[in-house]
Protein backbone atom coordinates (compact mmCIF):
# COMPACT_ATOMS: atom_id res chain seq x y z
CA UNK A 1 0.00 0.00 0.00
CA UNK A 2 1.49 3.29 -1.06
CA UNK A 3 2.07 6.01 1.48
CA UNK A 4 0.50 9.42 0.87
CA UNK A 5 3.26 11.88 0.05
CA UNK A 6 4.05 13.97 3.13
CA UNK A 7 1.97 12.05 5.67
CA UNK A 8 3.40 10.96 8.98
CA UNK A 9 4.74 7.44 9.45
CA UNK A 10 2.79 4.91 11.51
CA UNK A 11 3.05 5.42 15.24
CA UNK A 12 2.53 9.16 15.14
CA UNK A 13 -1.22 8.80 15.02
CA UNK A 14 -1.26 6.35 17.92
CA UNK A 15 -0.43 8.97 20.51
CA UNK A 16 -3.68 10.63 21.50
CA UNK A 17 -3.37 14.37 21.51
CA UNK A 18 -6.29 15.91 23.40
CA UNK A 19 -7.01 19.36 22.00
CA UNK A 20 -4.09 21.70 22.37
CA UNK A 21 -3.02 19.88 25.48
CA UNK A 22 -0.22 17.39 25.76
CA UNK A 23 -0.06 13.63 25.24
CA UNK A 24 1.33 11.76 28.21
CA UNK A 25 3.66 8.81 27.48
CA UNK A 26 6.34 6.81 29.25
CA UNK A 27 9.87 6.40 28.02
CA UNK A 28 13.47 5.65 28.89
CA UNK A 29 16.28 8.21 28.89
CA UNK A 30 18.89 7.11 26.38
CA UNK A 31 21.28 10.01 26.27
CA UNK A 32 22.03 13.33 27.93
CA UNK A 33 22.23 16.20 25.45
CA UNK A 34 23.57 19.74 25.92
CA UNK A 35 21.32 22.52 27.24
CA UNK A 36 19.54 20.30 29.75
CA UNK A 37 17.93 18.19 27.02
CA UNK A 38 17.58 14.42 26.94
CA UNK A 39 17.03 11.86 24.24
CA UNK A 40 14.15 9.65 25.34
CA UNK A 41 12.91 6.51 23.59
CA UNK A 42 9.18 5.90 23.82
CA UNK A 43 6.93 3.18 22.38
CA UNK A 44 7.67 1.74 18.94
CA UNK A 45 11.29 2.87 19.06
CA UNK A 46 10.35 6.50 18.60
CA UNK A 47 12.90 8.97 19.87
CA UNK A 48 11.97 12.35 21.24
CA UNK A 49 14.03 15.21 22.57
CA UNK A 50 12.79 16.19 26.00
CA UNK A 51 13.63 18.87 28.51
CA UNK A 52 13.22 19.19 32.26
CA UNK A 53 10.77 21.94 33.18
CA UNK A 54 12.20 25.06 34.76
CA UNK A 55 11.56 25.85 38.40
CA UNK A 56 13.11 25.32 41.81
CA UNK A 57 13.16 21.51 41.52
CA UNK A 58 14.98 21.48 38.22
CA UNK A 59 18.38 20.57 39.62
CA UNK A 60 17.10 18.72 42.68
CA UNK A 61 15.76 15.72 40.81
CA UNK A 62 18.56 14.53 38.55
CA UNK A 63 17.54 12.76 35.39
CA UNK A 64 20.08 10.12 34.44
CA UNK A 65 20.58 7.84 31.47
CA UNK A 66 18.45 4.71 31.94
CA UNK A 67 15.74 6.39 34.03
CA UNK A 68 12.12 5.61 33.25
CA UNK A 69 10.28 8.89 32.92
CA UNK A 70 6.84 10.20 32.09
CA UNK A 71 6.73 12.75 29.28
CA UNK A 72 4.22 15.17 27.95
CA UNK A 73 4.51 15.51 24.19
CA UNK A 74 3.77 18.79 22.53
CA UNK A 75 0.69 18.58 20.30
CA UNK A 76 2.42 20.77 17.76
CA UNK A 77 5.62 18.78 17.48
CA UNK A 78 5.45 15.13 18.47
CA UNK A 79 9.23 14.84 18.47
CA UNK A 80 9.50 17.18 21.48
CA UNK A 81 8.49 16.57 25.05
CA UNK A 82 8.72 17.74 28.64
CA UNK A 83 9.77 15.35 31.38
CA UNK A 84 7.13 15.63 34.11
CA UNK A 85 7.83 12.69 36.37
CA UNK A 86 10.54 10.19 37.19
CA UNK A 87 9.13 6.67 37.48
CA UNK A 88 10.28 3.92 39.84
Amino acid sequence: MARVTGDRPDGFDEVSVPGHGAASVEGTVMETLPHGLFRVVIARQRQVTAHVPSGPGRNFIRVLVGDRVRLELSARDLTRGRIVEKLG
Binding site: M1, R3, T5, D7, P9, D10, G11, R44
Partner: peptide, 14 residues
Protein backbone atom coordinates in the same frame (compact mmCIF):
# COMPACT_ATOMS: atom_id res chain seq x y z
CA UNK B 1 3.73 12.32 -7.24
CA UNK B 2 0.94 12.06 -4.67
CA UNK B 3 1.94 8.61 -3.43
CA UNK B 4 5.34 7.27 -2.48
CA UNK B 5 7.12 4.14 -1.29
CA UNK B 6 8.08 3.75 2.34
CA UNK B 7 10.19 2.05 4.93
CA UNK B 8 8.61 -1.12 6.32
CA UNK B 9 9.19 -3.39 9.29
CA UNK B 10 7.28 -3.62 12.55
CA UNK B 11 4.98 -0.94 11.08
CA UNK B 12 3.49 -0.89 7.59
CA UNK B 13 4.54 2.67 6.82
CA UNK B 14 7.86 3.69 8.31
Amino acid sequence: REFVGHGIGAALHE
